[in-house]
Each structure stands twice: as structure tokens, then as C-alpha cells.
């Protein structure tokens, strides 16, 4: 899965649901006090999480089409890399990523980054 820093306070990891709750090649939203987080599941069952705001004009990335490890924003078709949060191609901008891990089929998000 995604690579993350190893040092982190355990308390801020939260179980947000099962991998299978997110459609294959799709996304679901997790509401947090710091805004919505989009949780993506690729065709290979890899889980990624990003802030649900497109760097272009704030489009909800969770509503886009997921292909490979990218999502195409539903509003104006920017393509955002799920791993880095960076816009691909000619567009410039990036959205913060949220550390996500799968443990025994459950998705855990690191919420420390959201504060």
C-alpha cells in the first residue's frame, strides 16, 4: 500500500470502514472537522485518501472517474494523481494527501494531518 512516515501518534488513526464499502474504481467521502476527505479504491484494491477539493476550483474529487492511480475531476477534467495529490499533465496545483492504511480489510486514516 501507500508508503508513509512510520512515526505517528497512534490515537489519531481512525477506522473509517471496510475496503469493500468503497466501490472498485470509485470513491467515498469521510466527513471530518477539517473538511471532507475522499477515500479512493483503485482496480487493484489500493486505497488512497486526499482532501476532497480539486486544486483547480475546489471540485469534489470523490465524484470523479478513477482510472489507474488517478482521478479526473468532475468539474473541469483536471487529472489528479492519487498518490501525490499533484495535478498531472499541463495543469499545476496539488491537494494534500491523507495517510491511509488497510489492516485486515478495514481502512484506517491518519487524521493528524487534518488538524
Amino acid at each position: 500500500m501507500n508508503a508513509h512516515a512510520l512515526v505517528r501518534p497512534a490515537a489519531v488513526w481512525r477506522d473509517v470502514g471496510a475496503v469493500t464499502d468503497v466501490p472498485l474504481r470509485g470513491a467515498r467521502v469521510v466527513k471530518t472537522p477539517a473538511g471532507c476527505v475522499a477515500v479512493f479504491r483503485t482496480s487493484e484494491d489500493t486505497i488512497f485518501a486526499l482532501h476532497d477539493r480539486c486544486p483547480h476550483k475546489g471540485g469534489p474529487l470523490s465524484q470523479g472517474i478513477v482510472h489507474g492511480t488517478s482521478v479526473t475531476c468532475p468539474l473541469h477534467n483536471w487529472v489528479i494523481n492519487l498518490g501525490t495529490g499533484k495535478a498531472e499533465g499541463a495543469d499545476e496545483g496539488s491537494v494534500p494527501t491523507v495517510a491511509a492504511e488497510v489492516r485486515d480489510g478495514r481502512i484506517w486514516l491518519s487524521l493528524s494531518e487534518l488538524r
Binding site: 467515498r28 471532507c36 477515500v39
Partner: peptide, 15 residues
């Protein structure tokens, strides 16, 4: 149904 519901809502708990 999954399309219309958030996966999780952590707002009240966190608050």
C-alpha cells in the same frame, strides 16, 4: 446507496 452516504462521519465525534 453507497453513492449518497459518506463512508464515515467523524465530525461529531471529533468535535
Amino acid at each position: 446507496a453507497h453513492e449518497f452516504r459518506p463512508l464515515a462521519d467523524l465530525t461529531p465525534l471529533q468535535a
